[in-house]
């Protein structure tokens, strides 16, 4: 007996629309204005990224953001050479985890550098047209 072996399924949802929460929204608005901010916990005094309305360390409410110096340090990086299926990328991309002095956490983002290294100081390259997304920073470049 013959069989139909496969049956296709596509999730056809057009789009999800994610909101960033009261603190996250302020953060995105700051990005749109070309400013880098971090969440500030009034209880433990920590600054942290990415921002949330609660402090991940002590579970207290967070309402405030504070502007931070937009100079970060590369904590780790990778040069992505191939896509998930093993095909070589047209252009290698450097993905990094970037920390900011005095701030817990940090940002995962692209770095434009020929020879990235751990400990490298980087600053954001802002896009001219910004929408309030983490990609308003096009990439980080050596400071």
């Amino acid at each position: 007996m013959r069989r139909v072996k496969y049956f296709p399924e596509v999730m056809e949802i057009e789009a999800y629309v994610y909101t960033a929460g009261p603190v996250g929204t302020k953060w995105l608005e700051a990005l749109k204005a070309g400013k880098l901010m971090a969440a500030y916990c009034p209880k433990c005094g920590r600054l942290f990224l990415p921002p949330k309305m609660y402090c991940p360390y002590d579970f207290e409410e967070v309402k405030e953001l504070r502007e931070i110096a937009p100079v970060g340090v590369v904590e780790s990086y990778t040069v992505i050479e191939r896509d998930f299926n093993g095909e070589p990328l047209k252009e290698k991309r450097v993905l990094a985890f970037i920390k900011f002095p005095g701030v817990e956490g940090g940002l995962i983002h692209y770095v434009k550098a020929d020879k990235p290294r751990i400990g490298m100081r980087v600053r954001p390259k802002w896009r001219d047209e910004r929408r309030g997304l983490v990609t308003d920073i096009e990439y980080f470049e050596e400071a």
Binding site: T19, A20, G21, P22, G24, T25, K52, Y54, F59
Partner: peptide, 18 residues
């Protein structure tokens, strides 16, 4: 429609229960 992220909604409820 609530503006909080799912994580933040969970936090609001968890915090109140605590």
């Amino acid at each position: 429609r609530l503006q909080e992220t799912p994580q933040e909604l969970a936090w609001l409820a968890a915090r109140q229960a605590l």
